[in-house]
């Protein structure tokens, strides 16, 4: 409980400091809006030319896109410490400062950055979700709403977990950001479309190693009233837990890695 209070307080303070430069903040937020708008434009153009993707209709495609967008960028806003700031903190030695305080390193990392510019992306994602919901005529029930929230929440844990791979690489001072990007940003790009368009190896990758399919696509299929890849309906509520599993595993790896941390500077 105390940790959550600390996190909220940190976030409030970081917001305050970001708003010290309003012009820059506005400009960058606008850039983010255009960026995510461009991503959505690609989906719109695809729909315009192809009408559908396997059994998925335009509304379904917008829904998948929106779900990924909202989840991914919520993680980027509130998990910025892990998704963006961590490598810099290792390089500059800021991580030392965190180790000098009587709190968990991961907690403090999460408390050390926020990226409110990404709210612009979340706005686009929400619009896509709304559009998809209308076009696909989703009949919302409380259960479906709950499932959507669950999917987003565990999706955030999953993405956070994947970004922690990069953090672990950083601790061992391995420089291969691009390699990790393949799984994080690549995973986002791949899984903003339904999983069934991919060949078996990619499907296995996104079900077992980076289980976007379990965390997002199974619940999305349930919400869209589509068959759950042959699984019973209740699995839609269990599958997202895989996100927590990835996070837990990466958390343990991260803790182990911290034992090998070798600080910078003299």
């Amino acid at each position: 409980m105390d940790t959550i209070r600390l996190y909220i307080k940190s976030m409030r303070m970081l917001m305050k400091s970001q708003l010290q430069y309003p012009a820059s903040f506005l400009m960058q937020t606008l850039a983010q809006l255009v960026m995510e708008g461009g991503e959505m434009l690609a989906v719109i153009l695809i729909v315009d030319r192809f009408d559908r993707l396997n059994q998925w209709m335009p509304g379904d495609l917008y829904f998948f896109f929106g779900l990924m967008s909202v989840t991914f960028y919520l993680t980027e806003v509130f998990g910025r410490g892990v998704t963006g700031a961590f490598p810099g903190m290792v390089r500059s030695g800021q991580l030392d400062t965190l180790l000098l305080r009587p709190r968990g390193v991961l907690t403090q990392t999460l408390c050390s950055a926020i990226d409110p510019r990404r709210f612009a992306c979340i706005a686009v994602g929400t619009a896509a979700l709304a559009l998809g919901s209308r076009l696909s005529r989703i009949s919302w029930t409380p259960l479906k709403g709950l499932l959507l929230a669950e999917s987003v929440l565990f999706g955030m844990l999953l993405i956070l977990g994947l970004f922690m791979i990069e953090a672990v690489f950083c601790i061992y001072s391995v420089k291969s950001v691009e390699l990790v990007n393949a799984i994080t940003y690549g995973g986002r790009s791949a899984c903003q479309y339904p999983i069934d368009i991919y060949a078996r190896p990619l499907r296995v990758l996104f079900t077992v190693a980076a289980p976007f399919a379990l965390v997002m696509h199974v619940p999305a299929a349930y919400i869209l009233d589509k068959p759950l890849y042959g699984w019973p309906a209740w699995t839609a509520f269990v599958c997202p837990l895989a996100g927590a599993g990835v996070f837990a595993v990466m958390y343990l790896v991260f803790r182990r890695a911290m034992r090998h941390y070798r600080s910078t500077g003299s």
């Binding site: 105390d2 307080k9 400091s17 970001q18 305080r101 009587p102 403090q108």
Partner: peptide, 16 residues
């Protein structure tokens, strides 16, 4: 913290 008044920094340190 670089961009905030030092009193706010102290306040956060108290919580930490």
């Amino acid at each position: 913290w670089w961009d905030v008044p030092i009193l706010d920094s102290f306040d956060l340190l108290r919580d930490i």
